[in-house]
Amino acid sequence: MLRFLGRKTMKSEKSVAGSTSSNLSDWSIGSIARIITRLFQFVMGLTVIGLYAQDLVKAKSAHKYADPKWVYAVFCGAFGALTSVVFMLPLVKSWIFFGVDFLIFFFYMVLFGIFGKMYMQENPEGNKGIIRMKRAAWIDMVNMLLWFGTAVWGLCMFFRARKERGRQSVV
């Protein structure tokens, strides 16, 4: 069922871990693009953590409860950042796990829905907290689009690999 996992069917996903040369000319354009995209997802995940965690710290220092919306936001940022680091590794064919990308896309879509509804229509009137949360909602949207892009790319690569595997079994 998963025989294609061991094959190097996709040019953009070939691993360079076993090569003796360490220069970038051994890497394909697809591999470099994947690493840059995953690095950007990592940085954006850390940004989400930084934007929302400071409100959790303020609530804890004021001996108030942690609002589940902010806890969910920090979870989304942490899960996205951790996943992007794993998918950045050269030995991981991240396109196989396009379902995880879709799941994280869904998480960020819900997050953008929650905070977009709360803050997008809000008039900040100089309130720096509201301005920060409006910016955080836009960051959530960027994350949502990034994860959607990698999910669709992974889905396309998955079907392309299946098509190539089908052609190889006929010949």
Rank of each mutant, 00 (worst) to 15 (best):
M1K: 09
L2G: 14
R3G: 14
F4C: 11
R7Q: 12
R7K: 15
M10G: 00
M10A: 10
M10I: 15
S12R: 12
E13T: 00
S15H: 00
V16T: 02
A17R: 14
A17Y: 12
G18V: 01
G18D: 02
S19T: 00
S19K: 09
S21N: 01
N23G: 00
S28W: 02
I29W: 07
I29D: 08
G30C: 07
S31A: 03
T37A: 13
R38D: 10
F40Q: 04
Q41C: 15
Q41S: 13
V43L: 15
M44T: 05
L46C: 10
L46A: 02
V48C: 09
V48I: 13
Y52R: 05
A53P: 03
Q54N: 11
D55L: 15
L56I: 13
S61Y: 07
S61T: 12
S61M: 14
H63P: 10
Y65S: 15
Y65I: 09
A66K: 13
P68A: 07
K69A: 13
W70V: 13
V71G: 10
V71I: 14
Y72W: 09
Y72R: 11
A73P: 05
V74F: 00
F75A: 06
G77W: 03
A78V: 04
A78F: 04
G80M: 05
G80I: 00
L82N: 06
L82D: 01
T83Y: 12
T83Q: 08
V85W: 00
V85A: 01
V86Q: 08
V86M: 14
V86S: 03
F87S: 03
F87Q: 07
M88W: 02
P90R: 04
V92K: 05
V92F: 08
W95E: 04
G99T: 06
D101H: 09
F102W: 06
F102I: 09
L103N: 03
L103S: 05
L103M: 15
I104K: 05
F105R: 03
F105Q: 02
F106R: 02
M109D: 09
F112I: 04
F115R: 01
G116A: 11
K117R: 15
Y119M: 12
Q121R: 12
Q121E: 15
Q121F: 02
E122C: 14
P124V: 09
G126Q: 07
K134W: 04
A137E: 01
A137Y: 02
D140F: 00
M141H: 09
V142P: 12
M144H: 04
L145H: 03
G149T: 04
G149H: 06
G149R: 07
T150F: 03
A151T: 02
W153R: 15
W153F: 10
L155P: 01
C156V: 15
C156E: 12
C156T: 12
M157W: 00
M157A: 02
F158V: 10
F158S: 10
F158R: 10
F159H: 11
R160N: 15
E164G: 05
G166C: 11
G166Q: 14
Q168Y: 06
S169N: 09
S169W: 11
S169T: 01
V170Q: 15
V170T: 04
